[in-house]
Design a protein around this nucleic acid. Structure first.
Lengths: 108, 108
DNA sequence: TTGACGCGTAAGTGTTTGCTTACGTATATT
DNA sequence: AATATACGTAAGCAAACACTTACGCGTCAA
């Protein structure tokens, strides 16, 4: 049994700072120092948050000279969307209309 | 200023058990004992988790005799969906096709 | 009224988080 | 070679978390 280690995605995104980090990586790959400039905490703290995101599979790192560029892996957020989608019917009537449109279109 | 109290939604849903509780409440309102039967932890532990969900505004409680029926408030999950929707374009090509379909339809 | 039921809460405890400073290592610069 | 840069990691610590058992309080049943 290969143990799926570490924090799951839901835990990883529970911290506001980590969510912001993902948001930053959505724009572009970034080095640690670049990201650290956006936060008040120390650079090692940022590193540790990135580690959590890395363990959760939400980012990858690529060495680039002496930098480490972090890169977003948005696919892993799919499980969050999947879970939350069960609730959508209750608060997103826009999506409901969309779904209706689609089922008409596909002739189901 | 009425202070938006307590743990935020992202923290509230970070725990697997609490997510399962919401899932249960999606089917129907439930009393604490009914829910506790679905978990291995003690009944007070379940109560405490429900408290977190309550503080996050994800559920409400209604007294019903000596029971307390918990009721889902899915609207609060909107902020999760809002956040995650920024990432959808990258991993949900089904949605992309959907959006294309829609924009064609609306003649943009 | 007496007792069982349904529940919240207090108190105690081990574990995990989130941060800091100090340090080590690899790469680049001079 | 010596130094600066970019980073991870170790160590330490306070706070938060997740649980437990013990208890108290309102409600329904006999």
């Amino acid at each position: 049994m290969t143990r799926e280690r570490g924090p799951d995605v839901f835990t990883a995104i529970s911290h506001r700072a980590r969510r912001r980090m993902l948001d930053l990586l959505l724009e572009a790959d970034r080095s640690v120092n670049t990201m650290a400039g956006q936060f008040q905490m120390s650079r090692p703290a940022v590193s540790q948050h990135l580690r959590v995101l890395l363990d959760a599979g939400l980012v990858t790192e690529r060495r680039h000279g002496r930098e480490r560029r972090y890169h977003l892996v948005p696919e892993r957020l799919g499980q969050v969307r999947d879970w939350i989608s069960h609730y959508e019917q209750f608060w997103d009537d826009r999506l409901q209309r969309l779904q209706k449109t689609l089922s008409k279109r596909s002739g189901e």
